[in-house]
Nucleic acid binder design. Structure first.
Length: 130
DNA sequence: GCATTGACGAAGG
DNA sequence: CCCTTCGCCAATG
């Protein structure tokens, strides 16, 4: 079922050599993700909401996947699902890397879940002042 | 070019 | 409270 849509943004993974850098949804996601303070975390949905695409939280996650090879490293470990679960840990270099990075940030992780999630939660739309 | 699949999330049963 | 369905949009087969 589903559809076969195709449009907008196609430069997020292109090297951009002509200098005409076009910002895309992906880059916006990365931009926000890099602003996440150390020791704080946010959710895919929160970022999506900040970008005005609340219903497109999936794309945020997809953007994170592309971040794996992006130059300005993105703290993807600080982005978890609305449950506070490290849903994307398996997409890191190693399945344990995400948790290690978070704990290095001072975030306690237990059983693939962030402890004190609500307390650690960082909402871009709120913190960055939407 | 259509079908399937997600690092999600909210709503419905 | 657990499970299923639906929506969103890009990437992949």
């Amino acid at each position: 079922m589903k559809r076969a849509n195709k449009k907008i943004t196609d430069t997020e993974k292109l090297p951009v050599k002509d200098g005409s850098k076009k910002f895309s949804f992906f880059e916006d996601v990365w931009s926000v993700a890099r602003k996440i303070p150390k020791g704080r975390i946010t959710t895919y949905g929160a970022i999506a909401n900040y970008l005005g695409t609340r219903l497109s939280a999936r794309m945020v996650g997809w953007a994170m996947n592309a971040v794996n090879n992006v130059k300005p490293k993105v703290p993807a470990q600080r982005v978890v699902n609305r449950n506070g679960m490290l849903s994307g840990k398996m997409h890191f270099a190693t399945p344990t890397l995400m948790q290690e990075l978070l704990e290095k940030d001072g975030v306690k992780v237990e059983n693939d879940k962030v402890q004190d999630f609500e307390k650690r939660f960082w909402d871009p739309a709120k913190e960055l002042g939407l």
